[in-house]
Write a protein that binds this DNA or RNA. Structure first.
Length: 414
DNA sequence: TCTGGGGTCCTAGGACCC
DNA sequence: TCTGGGGTCCTAGGACCC
């Protein structure tokens, strides 16, 4: 874009006559495909990858099920306990039929496979936005014409299969939202092209949930208003949608009409980090809760460190039965990198939940800072600390260590 | 089927400042 | 002492995505 003719400098780059060529690349059953990649003997077999699952146990939920496993009734987010009833693990009894091969999630490995794929994408496209480990957008407007799109996308798909060994579904459209829906449309092993003139027609018959950013809640509400399909939504009253859903109302309206002006940009650095984990059973045991918090606090601090991020806000997420999510957080006067402080702060925030049964617990940091400026003075930590010292906390950074000692005691005294 | 471990954005309301 | 209108920052919760 920097090469544009200077006389066009006042043009809106998104409203140029030439429709953009946007691809959405989505790997099929990615975790299962990765396991198959390193276990080629499992070709054609049912594979289930479980989060929180451990060999020989039935804890956790299904992260990904291969299509063979889906044919036996195993789906994403099913508890492993339920999945094994449909499809017993081979390890339980090698003679049962049908049977599935169960694996715990191995993110490091999946990330390494993913980066091989992303390398090809960067090689083929101009701008690549990596959305998650198994998904990315490409803007190919400058390197391909709409009448060569099919060949371009097919080549990309083939390269991924040949060079990495896994199958991706690709959607091509003049904007991101349509490309995303298209990649899903012919899964698995899909290649779906929605040409500039055909976007509205493509969207009209779709189910509400297929529109980006419409989940079960919104879909239910919309149906109560008599809106059943994307086509209905495209013709709904925009003012009413705005009134009811704010900015999102307009977004889903535009998406349903096949309109999306977002540009494909490089991914932003993370804005928050979270480590959370569920108890096997909800527990009100304070010691267990505190131990969990300590582990998670150091885990999240380490993750921030690995990303070179300092944090200004520390918080906890608490899930109590049936599934009520609460968050509590506190902010500092400036960004820090201090795992022990994360632990102390998280433990203090946990006190509010004393005596309550907790099903799941997490520690997060937010308000990230990726520059390596000096750590902020810690003296003003916590909105609950007495206001008296507040006036002294902006002055001299050389006093940090002294102030930190004070802070430490104020955090443990309650 | 009650629910794993990550993330994002938006909104509402309170505190505080001028 | 009572008061208006506006801005900014922060927290908490909801909904969504993978």
């Amino acid at each position: 874009m920097s090469q544009r003719d200077p006389s066009h400098v006042f043009d809106n780059p998104t409203s140029k006559d030439e429709p953009r060529v946007i691809l959405h690349v989505d790997m099929d059953c990615f975790y299962a495909a990765c396991e198959r990649l390193r276990h080629p003997e499992l070709e054609g077999e049912s594979i289930v990858v479980g989060m929180g699952y451990q060999e020989g146990e039935t804890s956790g939920v299904v992260a990904t099920a291969s299509y063979e496993a889906r044919d036996h009734g195993v789906n994403s987010t099913d508890p492993v306990e339920v999945a094994v009833e449909q499809l017993p693990p081979v390890s339980f009894n090698p003679d049962t039929e049908p049977a599935g091969h169960y694996f715990p999630v191995d993110m490091d490995y999946y990330k390494s496979v993913s980066s091989d794929v992303k390398e090809i994408l960067h090689d083929e496209g101009e701008t690549v936005r990596e959305v998650s480990v198994d998904e990315a957008y490409l803007d190919a407007s400058e390197c391909v014409d709409w009448n060569e799109v099919e060949e371009y996308a097919a080549t990309l798909k083939q390269r991924i299969e040949d060079e990495v060994g896994i199958v991706a579904s690709i959607g091509v459209a003049p904007n991101m939202s349509a490309a995303k829906v298209a990649s899903d449309h012919d899964k698995p092993d899909g290649l779906c092209i929605v040409r500039p003139g055909g976007v509205q027609e493509f969207f009209a018959p779709l189910d509400l949930e297929e529109v980006h950013e419409i989940g079960p809640e919104t879909a239910k509400e919309l149906r109560e208003l008599g809106i059943e399909t994307a086509g209905d939504l495209a013709e709904a009253n925009l003012d009413l949608l705005r009134e009811r859903y704010g900015k999102r109302g307009e977004k889903i309206y535009r998406y349903a009409r096949g309109e999306d002006a977002r540009e494909v940009t490089l991914s932003d650095p993370p804005k928050s980090f979270l480590r959370d984990s569920a108890f096997d059973d909800p527990t009100d045991d304070v010691e267990r809760q505190r131990e969990q918090i300590k582990t998670l606090a150091h885990g999240v601090a380490q993750r921030a460190q690995e990303h070179g991020a300092m944090y200004q806000t520390i918080g906890i997420k608490v899930v109590t039965p049936p599934f009520d999510i609460s968050r509590r957080s506190d902010s500092l006067s400036g960004p820090v990198d201090d795992p022990d402080l994360v632990e102390r702060a998280a433990l203090e925030l946990l006190e509010e939940f004393q005596g309550q049964e907790i099903r799941k617990i997490g520690v997060f940091v937010r308000n990230l800072d990726y520059s390596d400026q000096e750590q902020a003075d810690l003296g003003s930590w916590g909105s609950k600390s007495e206001g008296a010292e507040k006036s002294s906390d902006t002055t001299d950074k050389s006093q940090t260590s002294e102030t930190e000692v004070e802070t430490q005691s104020s955090l443990t005294d309650f």
